[in-house]
Every structure is written in structure tokens, then in C-alpha cells.
């Protein structure tokens, strides 16, 4: 019934970020570095992350570098270990519904 969801490093920035485990590696706001937890919501400029103390933190996408962990179940077929992908937050700056459409723009401008 469930279609085979496949999140690759190449299509991560167009794919669903909610549910993935994230870690902040670099940020213009140094107090955010080191925050980790599953993403529970997404807006145009922010990611809502649930930290270990059952606290929800809003992290701005702009100026932040994330490492996403893609579970082995959702990774490339035949892969047994999790995949870790480092992403510049500026690439994710768009509403979650519109992020798919950014495929067009990227291709157009090379």
C-alpha cells in the first residue's frame, strides 16, 4: 500500500524534512550549535525541532548548516546503514509546498 519513499542526498532538499533527525553544525547564532532532535514542523524560514527535554525549538534556516540523518529504511534501496547529509539552510528557504517547485528554477539556471 505504502509507496516506496526514497530520500537520496540529491533529492533531500526537495523532499520531506519532517520526521528526519537533525543536528545543527554551524550557525550565525552560536548558541544554536549542537541542537539535535527530530524535525516536527516546517515553515518558510524556520524548522521546529523537538529537543531531548521534550522542548520545541524554532531554528532559522537562513545562515545555519544542518546535518540530516536519513534512516536506512528511507535511504537508497539496499543500503543498510543510515545516511548523513550536510545541507546549507539557505537552500531550504521556501515554503514546504513550494520546495518541490524549486527543481525547475535550479535546472533553468544551471
Amino acid at each position: 500500500m505504502i509507496s516506496d519513499v526514497e530520500i537520496l542526498p540529491s533529492n533531500l532538499i526537495y523532499h520531506e524534512l519532517i520526521g528526519l533527525f537533525v543536528k545543527v553544525v554551524d550557525s550565525t547564532n552560536p548558541s544554536l550549535i549542537g541542537i539535535r532532535g527530530p524535525v516536527i514542523d516546517e515553515t518558510k524560514n524556520m524548522l521546529l525541532v523537538e529537543t531531548s527535554q521534550a522542548r520545541e525549538l524554532m531554528i532559522p534556516k537562513a545562515g545555519t548548516e544542518f546535518i540530516f540523518r536519513i534512516p536506512a529504511k528511507l535511504s537508497e534501496k539496499g543500503r543498510r546503514s543510515d545516511t548523513f547529509v550536510k545541507v546549507q539552510g539557505n537552500l531550504l528557504l521556501s515554503q514546504p509546498e513550494n520546495r518541490i517547485k524549486s527543481i525547475k528554477k535550479l535546472r533553468k539556471w544551471g
Binding site: 505504502i2 509507496s3 519513499v5 526537495y14 523532499h15 520531506e16 518541490i100 517547485k101 525547475k104
Partner: peptide, 14 residues
């Protein structure tokens, strides 16, 4: 786009 969108819908549903 269609493929990615359906995948995302299934993921959100899950």
C-alpha cells in the same frame, strides 16, 4: 515533481 510529491504525501501520511 509528481514522483517526489506523492512520496512526500505518503511520508507525511505515515
Amino acid at each position: 515533481m509528481r514522483e517526489l510529491a506523492t512520496q512526500r504525501m505518503w511520508r507525511l501520511f505515515e
